[in-house]
Simulated scan of single mutants.
Amino acid sequence: MDWKLVNSEYLYKEPWLTLRRDICETPAGVTVNPYYVLEYPDWVCVMAVTADHQVILIRQYRHAFGTVLLEIPGGVIDPEDPVPLDAARRELLEETGYAFEQFYSLGAVSHNPSTSTNLTHMFLATGGKYVQAQQLDANEEIEVLLKDVNEVEQMLKEHQFVQALHVSCLHYGLEKIKELRADMNRGE
C-alpha cells in the first residue's frame, strides 16, 4: 500500500514550519500531484504531578485559535535536546519552574499523519518540586495552575481542554497513574 515518491520540492522552509509539494504514485499506478506535506520538528507534552499530588496545568494565549487555553506543559524538541525526555525536562523547568524525580514515557502520537511528519512524545512526570522562577521566551506569558488529579479527570470529562495532543497525554497519564497506584497497593 506504500506510495512511491516521484518528486519532492520545498516551497517554504523555516525552523518552525516547512512545506513541501510531493508527486507520488500509488501501487495502482495513480499519480497524486500535488500532495502537500508539512514538516515540523517533534514535540513533547507532559502530564506533570507535583510531590504533593497536584497536576500542573498552564494557561496561555494561542494566537491561531485567538484565545487563552488551558493546557499542559510542553513544546518543541530543540536540536540541543539529545532525546525527547531531555526536551520534556527542559520545557517543564522553563515553563513552570518545577523539576521532577520520575518520568514515564506514554508513547508518541501524530496530530495529523496525512499531512504532517512529526510526532508528539508524551510523558508522565511525578515528584515535582518548585526549584526556580519560570524562564519564558520573549513571546510567552504562562500562568501556572495546580489541580488535584481527580479534578483534572473531571475537567477532561467536561471537555475543558482543546489541544488534542494534550488530551491524549492526559488520558494516557491518568491510566499510568492508576497503574502505578495498583502496583503500590500490590506492594510492587
Score class of each variant (00 low, 15 high):
D2P: 09
K4F: 00
V6Q: 10
N7P: 00
S8C: 04
S8I: 00
Y10E: 10
Y10M: 09
L11H: 09
Y12R: 10
E14D: 07
W16F: 03
L17A: 06
T18I: 05
L19F: 04
R20W: 00
R21G: 04
R21M: 05
D22R: 15
C24G: 07
E25K: 13
T26Y: 03
P27S: 12
A28M: 06
V30E: 14
T31G: 06
N33P: 02
N33K: 14
Y35E: 08
Y35K: 15
V37H: 03
L38S: 11
L38R: 15
P41S: 12
V46H: 05
M47G: 03
V49S: 11
V49K: 11
V49T: 12
A51C: 07
D52H: 09
Q54T: 02
Q54C: 02
V55E: 04
I56G: 14
I58C: 13
I58E: 11
R59E: 10
Q60L: 07
R62M: 08
H63S: 13
A64K: 15
A64W: 06
F65E: 14
G66Y: 02
T67P: 01
V68R: 15
L70G: 12
I72H: 11
I72C: 12
G74L: 04
G75S: 11
V76R: 13
V76C: 06
P79R: 05
D81A: 02
P82C: 01
V83I: 10
P84R: 04
P84D: 06
L85K: 15
D86Y: 02
A87C: 07
R89V: 01
R89G: 01
L93S: 15
E95Q: 15
Y98M: 05
A99Q: 15
A99W: 04
A99T: 13
F100E: 09
Y104A: 12
G107K: 12
G107W: 03
V109K: 14
V109F: 02
S110N: 09
S110W: 00
P113S: 10
S114A: 10
S114W: 01
T115W: 00
T117S: 08
T117M: 06
N118M: 00
H121T: 02
M122I: 02
L124S: 04
L124V: 05
T126Y: 04
V131M: 14
Q132A: 15
Q132G: 12
Q135Y: 03
E140W: 03
E143S: 11
L146G: 13
D148I: 01
N150V: 01
N150T: 06
V152P: 07
L156V: 06
L156F: 03
K157F: 00
E158G: 08
H159A: 10
L165V: 08
V167Q: 11
C169I: 03
L170F: 03
Y172Q: 14
Y172D: 04
K176F: 00
K178V: 00
K178E: 06
D183S: 13
N185A: 10
